[in-house]
């Protein structure tokens, strides 16, 4: 296999500095909803100006370049150890070039490794094997700490919120999570919600849900209706961009169902900030395509 370090470095650069067009389109639409002269509108104007500037200058959209989360689908026979080495080399080089901030801190000593490498979970790389005739696909999500900190996991039933073990209960706890986040996760955010699983798989799936495009409808009609309703109702909370008050609190919602134990009913909410940085590269032979 070819050495992909340079190509992965370019994936990181694009992810950190160039906001996906579906996210930018939602931010522009949100701006039109907010009143002239309001703090909410001012915040969105600044956000959009920043998005343009970051793209032009190839500088990070946000200084918190987040946890680098890689999702790799590799054709049968490709070495995942080689891919891991190349991803890590690309992450180190991206840190040197200031596309990434040195973000990996040893939880015990408090020491920052300085180059975004750490234990076997940092950077986080998920591998999945596909058929040998399929291309290599690497998706990257950069998820900042502010929004990661406001993520929440509920177990249903939740008597405080009157939430039972059904989609109506899911709706209630998801709205509670948005309320609790206020502006602290850099609203307007995007909700990635997983229903079911165990605590670990549930959180994992809530992040995977965020890999979908904002304009991509859920194939399950019940979940599609829930996604639309949650976005609409979250926007009635009045939290607004940055928590300044206003009509735009959430840009979109993505829901995924999992199998669960009879005894457990987890709902995991991953909150993604407006700086929703995700990109995909597809490698077919010598050809690399970025989306």
């Amino acid at each position: 296999m070819n050495d992909l370090t340079e190509a992965i470095l370019e994936l990181i650069r694009r992810t950190s500095t160039d906001l996906p067009e579906d996210v930018e389109a939602r931010l522009r639409a949100a701006l039109e909803q907010e009143e002239e002269g309001s703090a909410a509108r001012g915040a969105l104007e600044t956000i959009l100006k920043n998005v343009e500037l970051a793209r032009e200058n190839s500088t990070p959209i946000c200084q918190d370049t987040g946890t680098p989360l890689f999702y790799v689908r590799y054709p049968e026979g490709m070495s995942t150890r080689a891919l891991r080495r190349q991803i890590i080399a690309a992450v180190q080089e991206a840190t040197r070039r200031t596309y990434l901030r040195p973000n990996a801190v040893d939880a015990i000593t408090g020491r920052n490794s300085g180059d975004n490498t750490g234990d076997e979970h940092y950077p986080t790389i998920h591998f999945e094997e596909v058929d040998a005739d399929q291309p290599l696909v690497i998706e990257l999500m950069l998820k900042g700490g502010g929004c990661e900190n406001v993520g929440a996991q509920y177990k249903l039933p939740d008597s405080r919120l009157g939430a039972g073990r059904d989609l109506e209960g899911v709706r209630k706890v998801a709205l509670d999570a948005v309320y609790k986040a206020q502006g602290k996760g850099c609203a307007p955010g995007v909700l990635g919600i997983a229903i079911g699983g165990d605590r670990g798989s549930s959180y994992l799936a809530s992040k995977e849900a965020l890999l979908r495009r904002l304009d991509d409808p859920n194939p399950n009609p019940d979940l599609d209706a829930l996604e639309k309703r949650l976005t609409e109702e979250a926007n009635q909370l009045g939290i607004g961009p940055m928590g300044f008050g206003g009509k735009t609190t959430v840009l979109g919602t993505k829901v995924k169902g999992l199998h669960r134990l009879p005894a457990s009913y987890f709902v995991s909410v991953s909150y993604m900030c407006w700086a929703y940085r995700r990109r995909r590269m597809t490698v077919r032979g010598d050809e690399v395509l970025y989306e």
């Binding site: 920043n50 500088t59 918190d64 901030r101 920052n112 502010g146």
Partner: peptide, 30 residues
């Protein structure tokens, strides 16, 4: 004072100069 979260490239433009740095052993962000 509330600054706009995530508007990092834009805000960096209003930083004219780094005068000094202390406690770099805390790591660049800290």
């Amino acid at each position: 004072f509330h600054a706009i979260g995530g508007a990092a490239s834009l805000i960096a433009q209003s930083v004219r100069r780094v005068v000094a740095v202390h406690k770099l052993e805390f790591g660049v962000p800290e």
